[in-house]
């Protein structure tokens, strides 16, 4: 489903955010990617979303070469991906309901579908009572749950979760991970980037380890080793 072939991303002559990275993520997999801050996890997600272009190598999504997609066709790629960011990236001028509904509106879902699905997803993430609150009125955990709800509502093929528990307390972090596992169980591929050792060790899923932009380990049922 997602394939990296000898991918490098160099921001300046001295800094290589990713260095010759190759791996493949299959459908319905739950893959964690670990590494210290600055190891290249966020860059890797940015490359999948085509927010950045690789300096070398090729990236495939569903056999489509990502860097060859034209700017105006990028929305179609991004609609197949649900992204969850560490800083939530919620639209501040929209309510929780509108933020989640937005992901369905962009794909052209009908008003009836939007109404039904948003209500369902809000219930899944436990935010029915906060539907009309603006992001500024929500706690960190609530914002992250809105971001996850937005990422999964349009039933994407894959969810990219970049440090989704980074700003949360252990209780909320666990809730978010449980939610991601539930989503994965329903058939969605989940690609999780984190440096939370406890979470990784408890998951017992595939773990890719990055260090200074290099892929140093890729293990089925891996553990957090740095």
């Amino acid at each position: 489903m997602i394939k990296f072939q000898y991918v490098s991303k160099i921001y300046s002559h001295k800094t290589a955010a990713l260095d010759n990275v190759s791996f493949e993520v299959k459908e319905k997999e739950f893959v964690s990617i670990v590494g210290k801050s600055g190891s290249g996890k966020t860059t890797l997600f940015k490359l999948i979303l085509a927010e950045e272009r690789p300096s070398n190598g090729r990236i495939f999504f569903d056999s489509q070469e990502v860097q060859k997609i034209k700017t105006k066709e990028l929305p179609f790629l991004r609609r197949k991906i649900g992204a969850v960011f560490q800083d939530y990236k919620l639209i501040h001028s929209k309510t929780a309901y509108e933020n989640i509904a937005y992901a369905m509106e962009v794909i052209g879902a009908s008003d009836k579908e939007v109404k039904k699905d948003v209500a369902e997803v809000l219930e899944i993430v436990g935010l029915t009572g906060k539907a009309n609150n603006f992001p500024i009125e929500l706690s960190g955990g609530e914002k992250q749950r809105v971001a996850i709800a937005r990422a999964l509502i349009h039933r994407p093929e894959v969810i990219l979760a970049d440090e989704p528990t980074g700003n949360l307390d252990p209780y909320n972090a666990l809730e978010i991970i449980r939610l991601l596992l539930k989503i994965n169980k329903s058939g969605t591929t989940v690609f999780l980037a984190t440096h939370n050792k406890t979470i990784i060790n408890s998951l017992e899923k595939r773990v890719i380890t990055l260090q200074d932009g290099k892929l140093i380990r890729d293990e089925e049922k891996g553990r957090f080793i740095l």
């Binding site: 105006k72 990028l74 929305p75 991906i81 992204a83 919620l90 639209i91 992901a103 962009v106 937005r150």
Partner: peptide
Amino acid sequence: EEIKIQRLVGASN
């Protein structure tokens, strides 16, 4: 920043 988020969510121009 909101425009960037909208692009990343998959909104057309």
